[in-house]
């Protein structure tokens, strides 16, 4: 019985403490409810309704018509094929660049290191249309390389190479930005240990570095891929929008939408719904990977802590 009176004041103090703490964090009910309903309203009008509407329009005449709308004309098929080619190539280029950049930034100390970190983010800040224009200025008929390319019969602008280049440009930061914090947190210790045990650079990279960064890398790849498939502005400028040749999926959606007939209108919604589905799938994979990378970082932190 001794412990009870001894305990009580403490418990009371503790509970008033938390009550006070909570009260300080809590705003009046009308502010809380006001903010919550505001956010829901904005989400509903700007996100949920439009997304749902795309699917509603696309499927309004049933899945069979939907499939016909999607596959009726060869040009739409062509756009899908082009996107499925451009995106993986850009992603691959980005993986190579991203790993190399993240490696350089986290493993070496060199002059211009912070500048490089900043420049990697530049494509996020530049409007895609402007990015497209920059490539036109370089590779167009009046651009720096234009005459030389023409003389050698190399087609860059209004063709596959330019589409890949601008897509790679606008997606450049994704992989590197994901990897830099992961590699920073994990540190170089394991890599140096591998070298001390006789591994060469290649063995060290594949057996130690890649397994350690794989979730972060995959996360970057997923985001990069989604952006690469959805890119419109930059591709719009450099592709020439040659129907059946240089139209990607988003460009094709635009062309069909402006087609003027109810058939093209329906097709544009069908194609848009494919892009939207892609976004939703990306979102779910992203959530799953975020948990994985968070667990990796937590483990890295806990190992460093116990040491």
């Amino acid at each position: 019985m001794h412990s009870v009176p001894k305990h009580l004041p403490n418990a009371a103090a503790a509970s008033t403490g938390t009550l006070r703490g909570r009260a300080a964090q809590q705003d009046p009910w009308w502010i809380r409810w006001g903010l919550i309903s505001c956010s829901i309203a904005v989400l509903l009008v700007l996100v949920i309704l439009p997304v749902a509407n795309v699917f509603y329009h696309a499927f309004s005449h049933g899945p069979v018509v939907y499939w016909q709308n999607l596959t009726a004309d060869a040009e739409t098929w062509n756009a899908i094929r082009l996107t499925l080619l451009v995106a993986p190539v850009s992603v691959a280029l980005n993986v190579i660049f991203g790993v190399a950049a993240a490696w350089a930034i986290t493993r070496f100390r060199f002059p211009g290191r912070t500048l490089l970190t900043t420049i990697i983010d530049l494509p996020f800040a530049i409007s895609p249309v402007v990015a497209g224009l920059m490539f036109v200025l370089l590779f167009g008929a009046k651009g720096y390389f234009g005459p030389w390319l023409q003389a050698n019969h190399l087609q860059v602008l209004n063709a596959f190479p330019a589409i890949v280049m601008v897509t790679t440009f606008v997606t450049l930061p994704f992989v590197a930005r994901e990897l830099i914090p992961v590699m920073e947190a994990i540190g170089a210790d394991e890599e140096i240990a591998a070298i001390s045990l006789g591994a060469n650079g290649w063995q060290m990279f594949w057996r130690i570095t890649v397994p350690n960064i794989k979730w972060g890398l995959l996360y970057g790849v997923i985001l990069c891929n989604a952006r690469a498939m959805g890119e419109f502005g930059a591709v719009y400028v450099v592709s020439g929008r040659i129907i059946g040749k240089t139209e990607t999926m988003p460009i094709r959606v635009g062309t069909l939408f402006e087609g003027g007939t109810s058939a093209t209108y329906a097709s544009s919604f069908a194609l848009a719904s494919v892009l939207t589905m892609l976004a939703l799938v990306t979102l779910f994979i992203k959530i799953a990977l975020e948990r994985k990378t968070a667990a990796d970082l937590k483990e890295a932190a806990s190992i460093q802590q116990t040491e």
Partner: peptide, 11 residues
């Protein structure tokens, strides 16, 4: 070589 923080391969 044994490292200060062991540097074991975590995976």
């Amino acid at each position: 070589f044994v490292f200060q923080h062991y540097a074991l391969f975590r995976h």
